[in-house]
Amino acid sequence: MRSIIANMMFDVIDRLDKISSEEQAFAELRKVSDFFGLNAFAISGIPEPHEKMDPYVLLNGWPEEWAARYLERQYFRIDPVIQRTLLSDNAFVWSDALDPASVDKRALDFMGEARDFKFIDGFSVPIHSIMGFRAIVTYAAEEVDMPQEGRSALHMISIYAHNKIKELKSDNKPQLVKRSVQLTPRERECISWCSEGKTAWEISAILGISERTVSHILENAQRKMNTTNRVQLVAEALRAGLIR
């Protein structure tokens, strides 16, 4: 039986799949943020250091003054959350992953400015593709208090929301050629169990195959779907209608 958080996650994904406007997507993410006690959010691609961030912003749920200041000063170049996002595709809570002692004075000054807007902690989801695309879905709060299941659910929702927004901005043309990707029945089965939060070991016990075989099946599916981790794989498979 699915938990309350798992049911919420699949309900949100189902609603995101049906929306037809950026305003609706914004409203859904606002509800999700409120559910997890988060104050603000944004979805954006990550530009190269010599570029400006403005064209990369897909959805802006920051306070207007902070958003304007961030873009005017191109703070992504010193933002430690962005720098952490470039290093790994694992979702993270800021207070867990960022050590103020390891950042320079400019980054510390930036963090001090963010605190003025009560952005003391947050949760960020890096999105990387095998082809080198980089993006972030990020949330801010005074304090982040989410169980691991909540973090996993928000990770999945964030990837799904990012891809939906990209689709809406391209006049509802699906961004993913993954809709034509052919997954084997076993790959679909393993991904479906992943969507239920099962580990490779648990899936191996359920299917009666080795854990190594499960990992190999999932790695093959990730390559087919141009994804870099299992959460992203599940989100993409759901978006493409390859699993339910």
Rank of each mutant, 00 (worst) to 15 (best):
R188W: 00
V93K: 10
A237I: 00
P63C: 08
S20A: 05
Y56E: 14
C194E: 04
S204M: 13
P147C: 10
A135P: 13
R244F: 04
G45T: 07
D104R: 00
M8T: 12
A200Q: 09
D145M: 15
E202T: 04
R134S: 11
L233R: 14
P49L: 08
A97F: 12
F35A: 08
V93E: 12
S180M: 13
P80T: 03
K31V: 13
K178Q: 08
F92I: 04
L59F: 04
N172S: 12
P49K: 02
V177T: 04
R230C: 10
F117M: 12
K118I: 01
R239I: 15
P126A: 10
M53S: 13
W66E: 09
S102P: 03
E64R: 06
K173P: 01
W62C: 02
A67F: 05
S170W: 03
A107W: 04
Y56G: 02
I217A: 02
F123S: 11
L38Y: 05
A101C: 05
L176D: 04
N163Q: 12
S152V: 02
P55A: 09
V93W: 08
R69G: 03
D34Y: 03
I159S: 07
R106N: 11
A141G: 08
I4T: 12
I136R: 01
A153K: 05
M225H: 05
I191H: 06
D96W: 07
E23A: 11
E196S: 07
V144Q: 11
K224L: 11
T199H: 10
G37D: 13
S192E: 04
I217D: 01
L154N: 06
Q74T: 00
W62K: 02
I136N: 07
M8G: 08
V12N: 06
I127F: 06
F117A: 11
R30H: 09
S210L: 00
Q182R: 11
